[in-house]
Design a protein around this nucleic acid. Structure first.
Lengths: 338, 338
DNA sequence: TTGTATGCGTTATCAT
DNA sequence: ATGATAACGCATACAA
């Protein structure tokens, strides 16, 4: 692979490389004609500026790195698309890396991105076990970074969040109002703030209605996690009247197992999920779910990052909390209610 | 952001930068002790080699770029995860870019990746309208590249494919054997080879059973596309007895509309989808679907790419055609069949 | 075994 | 308005 460089163009036109360079960088200290001539012949020669060299000297890339724990569920892809839209408008390219929910890979991903001098980072954590010192050092080094969805409170960086407490409360409240007692919460990964907040909301709803608190089971975010938990409930004969799940995927997995074992939804076990995946509307019965504004989350994250990049010193970290809504469907409606 | 360089280490240890450089590059022309000393102090100083500078001089990055048209459906994410697994093992980092099914963005993505000197590319095309000359020039320049899923026949590059013809034939055959006449094919984007091949398979099945060919409707790959097409069918009173859809998403979208209009699945309209999305098992009724080996596709693609990178001159482009299977579920089973 | 010097492709700082 | 030259951080051919 041979690359054409400004040197080649300079040679061909009998000018200096600085003249060629100037032609590309829109400075005014160059004659219009020479500029156009350079641009024209560069184009003819198939010249492409080498961003690597540019990065080396300028220490910036017009690339933005996005790191997410996974992208099999539609939540993260939708966020990414939202962010991408804003960033493309401003001339940034978006590089995506996924960590498979592994902190080790996440670290490598972020380091790769930073080493490659992305102008900024958008990150959703794989877990909150080991990250703190590392991310704090990144922030201290002045690397623009915005966290979303899965965050750690202490980070002095901008964050885009969803009000997990509030919406977990609403979701649980909905189940309580439907008349269900004995509600179980299938929670996500133990070490995430969002998991803690959803649990808090779950508890708060019970307090509000002076209802006895049901059990809380830590599972994860996959369909298989839901299936596993449901099987355990059936085996231990501890099947609750209603389930508030951390996730549509876990809800659907659990629901599937219950159906296979002859339970009726919602007549025997009612369900509310979280995240409004594309599955929610289409499973049987359609499942109630808390809808997060994925696209907005992406856009807001990108905007905060751009602000931080463009106003380096002046930027003050902000935390944005976006609103959602509860889509109520068949899986949670109590028809036998008096 | 101040970076620590080999210069700093050299100064601190009173050695030359080449000694420091050598310490990191595992050549034998350095004394063990100095090497260890350098490594140790480098570590203490928090030194991180600058991959940008390395790329500039070595013209390689140990990065692999993956470009896909979208990643909202689970097909592409699963492929990416498969590829990533192989590539990580060999020390490569994976950069993902998505084109939103736009050729313009796809081009920018690939250029960004190439300009950043990825060692190789894995690409699934957004469409086949404009790409040909560009990709051919890339291939001619010797940039390792493997295409999968959505390809153009003429490219002289390795490809990992699914036998769309065969499996479209099987899927259609299944519907015919169930006794359905008047089968419609909801096809994907018109200009894709996979669309053409699935149509061919659809037709071939009809020929094989000497059954009159039903209609073929070009739609797309989203749930909304399916909904739109179904609505049209109902409005024009041209509802077929069975539908073979290009995609689970379109199938599910269409199915939803039919159900809303009082049609029974499969009693009034039967369905077979494609791609075995995570939805297939969980919608109501569960939908029959052609399952593609997503994970394998990713792994095979990565392996072909690595072979190409490691045996530059010697590599011969190959086309791998992977096998799938038809998961038969309630949506297509004809109970009234004699 | 180590140091010196050159170059990768650019931009930036001087001159001219 | 243009040219010469020094960086950017690293690897490497050559010299010592």
């Amino acid at each position: 692979m041979e690359y054409i460089t400004i040197k080649d163009i300079a040679k061909k036109l009998n000018v200096s490389i600085s003249t060629v360079s100037r032609a590309f960088n829109d400075k005014y200290d160059i004659k219009k004609e020479t500029r156009e001539l350079v641009l024209k012949t560069a184009n003819e020669m198939g010249y492409r500026p080498n961003p690597i060299a540019k990065k080396l000297i300028q220490k910036r890339s017009y690339n933005i790195g996005i790191v997410v724990p996974e992208f099999v569920n539609s939540f993260f892809p939708e966020v990414i698309i939202g962010a991408q839209e804003i960033l493309h408008q401003k001339g940034y390219q978006v590089l995506v890396m996924q960590s498979n929910d592994s902190w080790e890979i996440e670290l490598k991903n972020v380091e790769t991105l930073v080493d490659n001098m992305v102008d900024g980072l958008i990150v959703s954590l794989s877990s909150e076990d080991h990250n703190n010192k590392y991310y704090n050092s990144l922030i201290k080094r002045g690397i623009p970074i915005v966290f979303f969805n899965r965050v750690v409170d202490e980070f002095e960086a901008s964050k885009v969040l969803f009000d997990d407490f509030k919406w977990a409360l609403f979701a649980t409240e909905h189940l309580i109002i439907q008349g269900y007692k004995n509600i179980t919460h299938i929670a996500g990964s133990k070490n995430l703030t969002l998991t803690k907040n959803r649990i808090k909301g779950f508890k708060a709803a019970h307090r509000k209605y002076k209802q006895e608190l049901g059990s809380i089971i830590y599972a994860g975010f996959t369909m298989e996690d839901g299936e596993r938990v449901a099987l355990e409930m059936i085996e231990k004969e501890k099947v609750p009247r209603a389930i508030f799940a951390a996730n549509d995927a876990t809800a659907i997995g659990a629901m599937k197992i219950f159906k296979e074992h002859g339970f009726l939804i919602p007549d025997d076990v009612a369900f509310v999920g979280f995240s409004e995946s594309r599955l929610a509307k289409n499973v049987s019965p359609p499942i109630s779910s808390v809808e997060q504004p994925t696209y907005d989350i992406g856009q807001s994250t990108a905007k905060l990052l751009l602000d931080q990049i463009e106003n380096k010193g002046l930027h003050i970290p902000q935390t944005l909390i976006l609103n959602g809504r509860l889509n109520i469907r068949e899986s949670s409606i109590n028809l036998k209610k008096v």
